[in-house]
Amino acid sequence: SPEVQIAILTEQINNLNEHLRVHKKDHHSRRGLLKMVGKRRRLLAYLRNKDVARYREIVEKLG
């Protein structure tokens, strides 16, 4: 489901952010981070168009 995919991506994004705080010059990982953020944004847009209630619920849960 989109909610699960968004939750997994959010966790991976948070982990990668911590990694990049330590390894500032790791541009390869930064590119992966940007791809993940874009994918999460697309999934959220899809969910917002399909079911606003589910969209609001996941945004509330994940912050």
Score class of each variant (00 low, 15 high):
S1C: 14
S1F: 15
S1L: 07
P2L: 15
P2A: 12
P2G: 03
P2F: 14
P2H: 08
P2S: 05
E3L: 05
E3K: 02
E3A: 06
E3Q: 04
E3V: 07
V4P: 03
V4T: 09
Q5W: 12
Q5Y: 09
Q5K: 07
Q5E: 10
Q5S: 05
Q5M: 12
I6W: 03
A7C: 15
A7V: 10
A7Y: 12
A7S: 08
A7W: 15
I8W: 14
I8D: 06
I8K: 11
L9G: 00
L9S: 01
L9Q: 01
L9P: 00
T10C: 08
T10D: 02
E11M: 12
E11G: 04
E11Q: 10
E11A: 08
Q12N: 06
Q12I: 13
I13Y: 01
I13F: 02
N14E: 05
N14C: 10
N14M: 10
N14V: 06
N15A: 13
N15P: 01
N15F: 13
L16E: 01
N17Y: 15
N17T: 14
N17R: 15
E18D: 09
E18Q: 10
E18Y: 09
E18H: 09
E18R: 10
E18K: 08
E18N: 09
E18M: 09
H19W: 14
H19F: 10
L20F: 07
L20H: 03
L20D: 02
L20A: 02
R21H: 04
R21C: 09
R21F: 03
V22L: 13
K24M: 09
K24S: 12
K24C: 14
K24L: 08
K24F: 07
K24W: 09
K25L: 08
K25G: 13
K25A: 11
D26F: 04
D26N: 05
D26W: 03
H27T: 07
H27I: 12
H27S: 09
H27Y: 11
H28Y: 07
H28M: 12
H28A: 14
S29V: 11
S29D: 05
S29P: 03
R30Y: 10
R30M: 12
R30C: 15
R30N: 07
R31E: 09
R31K: 12
R31Q: 07
R31C: 12
G32I: 15
G32F: 14
G32W: 13
G32P: 06
G32T: 15
G32M: 15
L33H: 03
L33F: 06
L33V: 04
L33K: 03
L34K: 12
L34Y: 09
L34D: 07
L34W: 11
L34P: 02
K35A: 10
K35D: 13
K35N: 11
K35P: 01
K35Y: 09
K35E: 15
K35T: 08
K35F: 07
M36W: 03
M36G: 01
M36I: 09
M36Q: 03
V37M: 13
V37T: 04
V37Q: 08
G38L: 14
G38I: 14
G38V: 14
G38P: 00
K39Q: 14
K39P: 00
K39M: 13
K39Y: 07
R40A: 04
R40E: 01
R41A: 11
R41Y: 10
R42D: 06
R42F: 07
R42V: 09
L43N: 00
L43Q: 01
L43K: 01
L43T: 00
L43M: 04
L43Y: 03
L44N: 00
L44W: 02
A45K: 10
Y46W: 11
Y46F: 09
Y46Q: 13
Y46A: 12
Y46R: 10
L47H: 00
L47M: 04
L47S: 00
R48N: 02
R48Q: 06
R48V: 03
R48M: 07
R48K: 14
N49P: 00
N49C: 14
N49I: 14
N49H: 13
N49R: 12
N49G: 10
K50A: 12
K50E: 11
K50W: 08
K50G: 04
D51F: 03
D51I: 05
D51L: 04
D51Y: 03
D51Q: 02
D51M: 03
V52T: 09
V52H: 11
V52Y: 15
V52M: 14
A53S: 11
A53N: 14
A53G: 11
A53H: 14
A53F: 07
A53I: 11
R54N: 03
R54W: 04
R54I: 07
R54P: 00
R54F: 05
R54C: 06
Y55S: 02
Y55M: 03
Y55P: 01
Y55C: 04
R56K: 11
R56G: 05
R56T: 11
E57S: 05
E57L: 05
E57F: 04
I58G: 00
I58Q: 02
I58C: 07
V59L: 13
V59Y: 03
E60T: 08
E60P: 01
E60K: 12
E60M: 09
E60C: 11
K61F: 08
K61C: 09
K61E: 06
K61L: 11
K61I: 09
K61Q: 09
K61G: 07
L62S: 02
L62T: 03
L62W: 05
L62N: 02
L62H: 02
G63T: 11
G63N: 13
G63E: 07
G63R: 14
